[in-house]
Amino acid sequence: MIGAAAIALVVAIALMLVRALSGPTLYDRVLAVNSLGTKIILLLGVIGFLTGRPDFLDISILYALINFVSTIAILKFFRYRSFQVSLTRRGKGGS
């Protein structure tokens, strides 16, 4: 059962990789990186259960935090071409 889950996750990772490699727009790549990060987190949990050590779940939670922060950083870079702009003070319909 866990093996089947691992195979499904590997297939999903391969599909994300195709999207990240071929593009065509930058947003496709950002989305591919973000969801590939999610798949990696799930795969880490599955590896933990495969090796009989569910302690790996802690590591995957930390990966989730890193993935979230780096996605925010990438999107912020997209929007403002800089990391030095605060995210909260920009009212008027999000512009």
């Binding site: 866990i2 093996g3 691992a6 590997v10 590896i47 259960f49 495969l50 090796t51 009989g52 050590r53």
Partner: peptide, 14 residues
């Protein structure tokens, strides 16, 4: 270390 039978093979494939 392995959780079930065949886990070593699964890890190798992974």
């Amino acid at each position: 270390m392995t959780g079930f039978e065949g886990a070593t093979l699964a890890i190798d494939l992974l």
